[in-house]
Nucleic acid binder design. Sequence first.
RNA 1: CCAGAUGGCCGGAUGGCCGCGCUUCGGCGUCACAGGCGAAGCGAGGAAAGUCCGGGCUCCAUGGAAACACGGUGCCGGCUAACGGCCGGCGGGGGCGACCCCAGGGAAAGUGCCACAGAAACAUACCGCCUAUCGAAGCCUUCGGGCGGCGAGGCAAGGGUGAAAUGGUGCGGUAAGAGCGCACCGCGCUUCCGGCAACGGCGGCGGCAGGGCAAACCCCACCGGGAGCAAGACCAAGUAGGGAUGGCCGGCCUGCCGCAAGGCGAGGCCGGGUGCGUUUCCGCAUCGCCAUCCGGGUCGGUCGCGCGAGGCGCUUGGCGACAAGCGUCCCAGAGGAAUGGCCAUCCCCCGCCGCAAGGCGGGGACAGAACCCGGCUUACAGGCCAUCUGGCAAU
RNA 2: UGGGGGAUCGUCUAACGGUAGGACAGCGGACUCUGACUCCGCCAGUCUAGGUUCGAAUCCUAGUCCCCCAG
Length: 115
Amino acid sequence: MSALARLKRRAEFLRVAGSRRKWAAPGLVLQAAPSPDDASGTPRIGFTASRKVGIAVERNRARRRLRAAVAATMPLHAAAGHDYVLIARAETVRRPYADLLGDLETGLKRLGLWR
RNA sequence: CCAGAUGGCCGGAUGGCCGCGCUUCGGCGUCACAGGCGAAGCGAGGAAAGUCCGGGCUCCAUGGAAACACGGUGCCGGCUAACGGCCGGCGGGGGCGACCCCAGGGAAAGUGCCACAGAAACAUACCGCCUAUCGAAGCCUUCGGGCGGCGAGGCAAGGGUGAAAUGGUGCGGUAAGAGCGCACCGCGCUUCCGGCAACGGCGGCGGCAGGGCAAACCCCACCGGGAGCAAGACCAAGUAGGGAUGGCCGGCCUGCCGCAAGGCGAGGCCGGGUGCGUUUCCGCAUCGCCAUCCGGGUCGGUCGCGCGAGGCGCUUGGCGACAAGCGUCCCAGAGGAAUGGCCAUCCCCCGCCGCAAGGCGGGGACAGAACCCGGCUUACAGGCCAUCUGGCAAU
RNA sequence: UGGGGGAUCGUCUAACGGUAGGACAGCGGACUCUGACUCCGCCAGUCUAGGUUCGAAUCCUAGUCCCCCAG
């Protein structure tokens, strides 16, 4: 994930969620917001897997699959100068990988951040 | 072969492409770091889980002790750093058996409880049984007495109630009965023997010496300071050194207010208050104290943090838990948190098609380190090994 | 991650180890021209599994779920 950065603070997640730009797909929920300080910087990604997703094994699996999908797609196609939050759902663990990639791509297109 | 018991073990395998974390090395870069590039090595579990116990480690309290309080454990012996764990025994219960299960000290130290029912739940008599003993109505009489069963009295066998009714069965015995006597069983005490002990065995004595509950209070024995890696240490940055409300002391001196009586935490001293679990003496800290609320700062980094009661193998001792010795290995260290994503082949299971070879499709348990270790408990697809038991068949 | 607390009708809340009670809600009925109020009745529950006890919501053990706290 060399071309991407990570979101780590709770406040950052809340700020992205407060922007209300989101797209819900069967495999994931994508939220996005412009970066506060650097409009042309590298995209920053955050992952969330709540207890609704499942036990710790399933939460870890969901987050890893999302991270793999991001590594395959977003360095090339995500618009710069934005923060993204990916929320795992219960389906994220079982959804076929190709569909998961499709969810992420259509999410980026729907939010107008496809590049 | 079938059914079962116990103990131990495994927890999919191989490869490819793309990635992640840590360590080391190389070169780039830098005054030196940082950073990023490449390579190599390593990278979840038997339960990592629940957080139910025990320790290590860290800080606080530790001053000096005793008593009290509180919490825990509970047959005996051993193992262990320790344990509520483990091993071996004992006792009780279950199973044809291999084997399994048991909080399993004390109820004549004391207190308490035992609802309803029942006469009575710890010391009793409702129904009942009896008339030997004492008194009496009535009846009979050969006038000696007898019958009668009202009262006093005796009894606890039977009925009934209950979870539980003061040893059980049988024989004798008696007015009726009763360990009242005897035999066997049970129980208590005890000589001797075996055992370190729990306990067991043989014998003797005692007629029973006194219901249940201690996962009720309790007694006895033993153990235990408190908090926890968000412990704690260091570096960097940085604000404040507060405010409001309410409640609660005495004496003396000074000061202030007041003409005075007097008042006032403004100050000091003494008593004292508060804290160190409680009490006692002593000691220490703090002088206003206590409660509630408000206000202000940070949300960074490094260490702690991976050689340990360590893993594996062999030998020796021990029934065993385990211990000792020798050899060998280094084996995760993240921090919105790495240990992965995808694909292929093989293995196992299920379904469908097929005579078959095989083909197609689906699935592969429980579950993710967060300071570490020893246990316990709980979850778990499928499989392997060893020993043993019962049954059937054959030899 | 560590520490602490709790679970009783749909909701809130009682119950020395001895029949699980009350309020609200719901349903039915009565009163009323109708509704409200009021009255009567019904519906229902001890988180789960074992154990101790004659008897467990209560005591003990294990599990499940929920809530709170933290430098």
